[in-house]
Structure formats: structure tokens, C-alpha cells
Write a protein that binds this DNA or RNA. Structure first.
Lengths: 195, 195
DNA sequence: TAAAAAAGTTGACCACGGTCATTTTTTTTG
DNA sequence: CAAAAAAAATGACCGTGGTCAACTTTTTTA
């Protein structure tokens, strides 16, 4: 049977994460350097990669909980009953995810787990998002011709689309919220149509 | 006034691109190394970066036209009249965009132009996509309560969502097409609802 | 408690994208 | 045509993420 993790290990890991958090607070995610992290944590460079598969994995670990905090807030609050309420509720999450171009890229890259055994913090938050959105739709004044899960996945797709447009000089004259609202209105309260 | 580009320059650039295309054909996009490109092209490493801002820019240049080729085909064909026809028409494009994880990442990163003056090949294709989709909807048996442009942007969002799921071990038991169809059905032929 | 085994750490080293002062080639000027 | 100016190419060098064989510390075994 596997031996218990040593206290020393946990301490080293905690020092590395604390150093990384401090650096992020000071210079942002993109400017974080592994060298700087190990310097502050007082470890060798190799130690970093013993604890984290790569730099992005550490980012996953730092960004994931921040997203989760927003999801906690969403879950604690009431289900939005209008499109305006919904976009309003989603904006803090969008702002976090688009705080840096680099952060948005990491989130997209990590939003899907590479393997079932490797569901990282960010990938988990994407699963949670669907759950939370779907709960909103279980009993809401929106369309009911499709499953709540499908509606939820659509909301996620549109949120991503709206955020991505923010980084495009051709489209960023509109705010994320301005882009998201027509999407969600058309998705959640369609006037019917089609053959 | 600016002097004309030298023939030598165009030749060097052509050699670099040809070398890159050959490498991609042999080992794929992800395994391409700049060192290998310049070795085959018979130039110094620095020359590569005189011609391309960075490695990703070259990728943009190689991937963009391939997407365009598919868009040409879509534009040449008739507008799909059913969801099945639409997903069928879109699949070749999806297969190209997801041929490698790395390719999908590059496409996402370059899908939005960083500046109006820097609209690269891939970013252009995303604009074209919207135009082509919107044309489909100008006269189609789908919902008509929202603009064709909005419908087109939605299709794009759902295509990306379906492709992204393909790289997630949690979801990739379903094919892209199987995921895309319910999305598009719900988006393009809603049964009405909402308040 | 000593020896063996496992866990944890280390830092020199590598891979690879990207830079830039210098050199070579081409074009323009007079 | 030679001299000057501009354009293009060069390759040694750098930054940074990541590896790994050797070393140190902790835990287990007997």
C-alpha cells in the first residue's frame, strides 16, 4: 500500500503555491516565471516539476479555485428569472475568465479533461457550470422544449463566444454583456420557427 | 515610397513555407520545429523570424488556407435545408479543425484578430464563416425571429463547443456530429417558449 | 538501532522559440 | 561605374520551460 505523503512534501508544495499566488498578485498570471516561484519558495527548480506536471498545471490549480468561488456565489443566489438577471449574474465570472488573455487561453485549454483520471480544477468548474445552469432551468420562465442540460451547455457555449469576441479587435467595441444578452435571449426565449 | 520586395525575399519565404508544409505532411503540426524548417529551407534560423513574426504566425499561414478551401466548398454548394444536411456539410471543416489538439488550440487563439491591422488567415476564415452561415439563413426553413447574423454566430459557437468536447475524455464518447445535431436543432428550430 | 527501501530534493543540463548586432547582397544615387 | 543606402540574411546568443541521474532525508524492516 502507498505510504502517506510526508509533511515536508505538503509544506514544500504549499510554499510553491503561496509564492505563485504572491507573484500573480504582483505581476499577473502571464508574467509568472517558474524561476521566480522556486526562488521565493526557496526550492530548486526541479522540485517545482516534482509537484506540478508543468507550469500550466499550477495555473490550473490557481485559477480553478477562483472560478469555483464565483460558482459558489452563483449557487448560493437565486436562479435568474430574466435574461438581464442572468447576464448580470454571469458577468463577474466572465470578468475573471477574461482578466488576461493568457488566463482565457489556459482556461480554454484546460476546460476539457484530457483523461477521466486527470480532471483538473478548471475542468471541474466547467462540469459544475453545467450543473448550476441546468438547475436554473429546472423551473424557470424559459423555453422548455429541450432538456435543462442542453440549455445549460448552450449558455456555456455562448458565454465562451462572447468572451472570445472580447479579445478580437474587430468586435471588442461591444462589452461581453452586450454581446451575451442577444445570444441568451435568442437561445432561452425563442419566438419559435423553423420547419 | 517603399521599395518593391525583392525576388530573393519571395523565394526564401516560399522555401520556408514549402519546407514547413512538407514537415507537416510528414510528422504533423505539433511536431514541427523551426530548426527543422530552416534546415530544409537552407536558411539561417534568424531568417525564419524575419519572414514570420513567430512560429504560430506560420501555422496561421498554413492552417488558414486549408480552412478557406473548406469554406470555398461550403460556399459553392447549396444552402443546407435540414439540420442533418447542415451537420453533414460542416463535418469536413470540423475534422480539419480537430485533426490535432495543437491545431485546434492555434485556431482558437488566432480566431480573433488582435488588431484590425493584424487580421490573419485564420481570423479571416472566422469572419467568412459567419458570412456563409448567414447567407444560408437568409432564405431557409429555420427560425426567423432573429437576424441571420445572430443565427450564424450561434452556429459558430455550437460548432466550437462540439469540437472542444471532442478533446475532453468525459465527453468524447459522442462524435462531434452527434453533439452538434441537438445543439443546432434546438438553436435553429426551437418549439418556442419562455416568458 | 542499524541497514534497507522509499520518498523527496537538487541543480546542472537540455530543447526550442525567439533576438539582435554584424555581414552580405541588392538597389539607388550622382 | 563607384559610393552610399537600403534590404535581406546570418548565427551566436538568450530566456524559459522542462528533464534526470545523483544526492539527502524520512520511513520501514528485522
Amino acid at each position: 500500500m502507498a505510504r502517506a505523503t510526508q509533511k515536508r512534501t505538503l509544506e514544500t508544495r504549499a510554499r510553491l503555491i503561496a509564492a505563485a499566488e504572491a507573484i500573480v498578485a504582483e505581476v499577473g498570471f502571464e508574467a509568472l516565471r517558474v524561476e521566480e516561484v522556486v526562488l521565493r519558495a526557496g526550492t530548486a527548480k526541479g522540485t517545482f516539476f516534482v509537484h506540478f506536471k508543468d507550469k500550466d498545471t499550477l495555473m490550473d490549480l490557481i485559477i480553478g479555485p477562483r472560478i469555483d468561488a464565483h460558482l459558489d456565489a452563483l449557487q448560493a443566489g437565486p436562479a435568474p428569472r430574466t435574461i438581464e438577471e442572468m447576464t448580470g449574474a454571469l458577468m463577474p465570472l466572465c470578468d475573471l475568465m477574461t482578466c488576461e488573455r493568457y488566463v482565457f487561453d489556459v482556461i480554454l485549454r484546460y476546460s476539457g479533461a484530457a483523461g477521466v483520471a486527470e480532471i483538473g480544477p478548471i475542468a471541474s468548474t466547467f462540469g459544475r457550470q453545467i450543473e448550476i445552469f441546468a438547475q436554473w432551468f429546472d423551473d424557470a420562465p424559459f423555453r422548455r422544449d429541450v432538456t435543462a442540460d442542453l440549455l445549460a451547455e448552450g449558455v456555456q457555449a455562448f458565454v465562451i463566444q462572447a468572451m472570445a469576441a472580447q479579445f478580437c479587435a474587430l468586435h471588442n467595441s461591444q462589452s461581453i454583456r452586450e454581446r451575451l444578452e442577444p445570444y441568451l435571449r435568442a437561445w432561452l426565449t425563442p419566438a419559435a420557427g423553423g420547419t
